[in-house]
Design a protein around this nucleic acid. Structure first.
Lengths: 357, 357
DNA sequence: TTGTAAGCGTTATCAA
DNA sequence: TTGATAACGCTTACAA
């Protein structure tokens, strides 16, 4: 195995005593090769530790059989599940996956998309909200996975945030909670999750205070405390101006609990925010879930730890990935195909932060 | 921008009215090209939205300028920081980074290393403990980042686990703790961290009960409870047979706290285990850090959340990445260079789970 | 400073 | 079923 230069197809052909065309046929598993020659070639390949050069293959071949995956940020763990799904639908179909986050090869390429174009990928998967400055040529098949809008002509496969928000509300109401709170931001996902949550409450005959933007005084005087008797459900929503983080989730919840001490269940637009919510609950000397139930969104690994044990909405990233791969394949087959938006139904994972009231 | 086939160097040459060699020279920023021609070429490139084919470039060129990074698992978040460091030392030097985890293109390639060999990468970074079956040809420059051993001939850049373990002990002792516990497994990293912790205790004049393997009865009868008066420090270590997880960390700690109720500080071999430790402490009705202090290792994102706020040892993955890139570059320059092992000094990040006794 | 021409390691198109 | 031979898009001597 004293590797000097890697063996080429010529070396294999010479060693097997055949032409390089024949070697190429064997490589492509052509059925019309005699068993004898085939084994001779295979033996030579093994002996020489030969491996086709991907550069030569994609240069000479008609297709690169490569798909580029653009991640918004490697830190967003959800891409792990997304990749699992993509592998199922793409890799198993003989496509090679190349992943890059927004910064992976900047400096060499202007953007990960640029790099993929240089590689002559056959399609691109954009994970998360597509950046506006991600210039993808019109002729390149693209699918947006997990994000919405952005590229009009692209297929989209995303979580059904509305359904997820509604699930959160239904779960809490089923547990007997009637005074609900919401903490989220102004991102597209958060807004739709809030709408779903509101719909869940209204479906139960309840009312929701119009989303209040944090920092602005409340215009509406909804009598949440003097609510009608019975099981009437009411909700108060806090929509943060700034990014929703653990920190802002904490301060927003602190305020929410002061202004609405009747709230016994909070739905946070994402898991990290939910951590802030839980800290705020603890700070007031209340316990989760005995005094206040908390639901997050995304079902991140941190929610799944026993220590945190956060009830959360699983956005089914694996299925989103699989679906995205299938859509991309379909578009590569038929580029004229109209772009569609596909929603994946999320599911609620009940853990230790929610309990009956 | 009606892209049909991507433009080639021929198209650019024709449009600019020059030879394709001249275009190539411009691409390589050769200084000996007249300003006039250069702008003509650059204009043509822009107009045609031309992008060199990486396949053709690496096939025709002498070097691929590509480095492969093998991750053990995308779920181990530490690779994010590692990549940051690698970008600094490699990408900024004009190298392209291609990342893959153990499963990324299996089916197409036998292993990520196979894929990289096909791509004719100039070097490979193996992140984490190298798999034994990762067959890397002797002639391929390799550096192991964050793991130890495995490939004898490879340079290694890793966290100084011994120093980290010692830091944990010193931190706790400085806070006044004298009855210390350890929970870890039998992985190389865990064993060394334990050794460092022990050294820290011994340096303070203390003694450590010989690591006890969980499940086996204690052979040694070290009088930890009847310790000499004064500030004598003692430690009890539990070494798990099975993998250290949140679950096993929990059960091991539960037992530790029963058998050694005098323990007021626990050092866990990693952050996830530390979560199990904290659950076990809570289960006994004790509080962190008022009753028991807890230190983790790796400084994972979960430790950094305010909600968890785990004091942890930061293994400085960014620096490991930068160092690994530098070592790899040096080896590519001089393949005969003897392999060395480089240790990066970790640092303790004090948060809310440790307090003075 | 610019152009010509010979590769680089494959696949693909013909003939044989 | 096999083998020439021409691409593929670029780099790189070598000439001019």
């Amino acid at each position: 195995m004293g590797d000097g230069k890697p063996a080429t197809i010529y070396d294999v052909a010479a060693r097997a005593g055949v032409s390089k065309s024949l070697v190429s046929l064997v490589l492509q598993r052509s059925p019309r090769v005699s068993e004898q020659r085939r084994t001779a070639v295979l033996t030579a390949i093994a002996e020489l530790d030969y491996r086709p050069s991907t550069a030569a293959v994609s240069l000479a071949g008609t297709r690169s059989r490569t798909i580029g995956v653009v991640l918004d940020d490697f830190r967003n763990q959800w891409f792990v599940d997304l990749l699992t799904g993509l592998r199922e639908s793409l890799q198993d179909q003989g496509h090679r996956l190349v992943v890059a986050d927004r910064f992976l090869n900047t400096g060499l390429d202007a953007s990960p998309v640029e790099g993929f174009l240089s590689m002559r990928v056959e399609g691109i998967v954009i994970a998360g909200e597509p950046d506006a400055d991600l210039a993808v040529p019109a002729s390149m098949p693209v699918v947006v996975a997990g994000g919405r809008g952005g590229l009009a002509r692209a297929d989209t496969v995303a979580n059904d945030d509305f359904a997820g928000g509604r699930m959160a509300a239904e779960h809490l109401i089923a547990l007997g909670h009637v005074r609900l709170g919401f903490v989220g931001g102004r991102s597209a996902a958060s807004v739709v999750r809030l709408a779903g949550w509101r719909a869940g409450i209204e479906a139960a005959g309840g009312t929701v205070r119009t989303p209040r933007v944090d920092g602005e005084p409340d215009r509406e005087a909804v009598p949440t405390t003097s609510a009608p008797a019975g099981a009437d459900v009411t909700g108060v929503a806090t929509v943060l101006q700034a990014d929703v983080t653990e920190e802002t989730g904490f301060t927003a919840t602190r305020r929410l609990l002061v202004e609405h001490p009747e709230v016994t269940a909070v739905f946070a637009a994402n898991d990290v925010t939910a951590l802030g919510v839980m800290s705020a609950v603890a700070e007031r000397g209340l316990r989760v879930p005995e005094d206040v139930s908390v639901v997050g969104y995304d079902d991140t690994p941190i929610a799944a730890t026993h220590y945190v044990g956060l009830t959360s909405i699983d956005d089914r990233s694996v299925d989103i990935g699989r679906g995205a791969g299938e859509q991309l394949l379909a578009r590569i087959e038929d580029p004229s195909r109209p772009a569609r938006e596909h929603l994946v139904e999320p599911r609620l994972i009940a853990r230790r932060t929610t309990a009956a009231r």
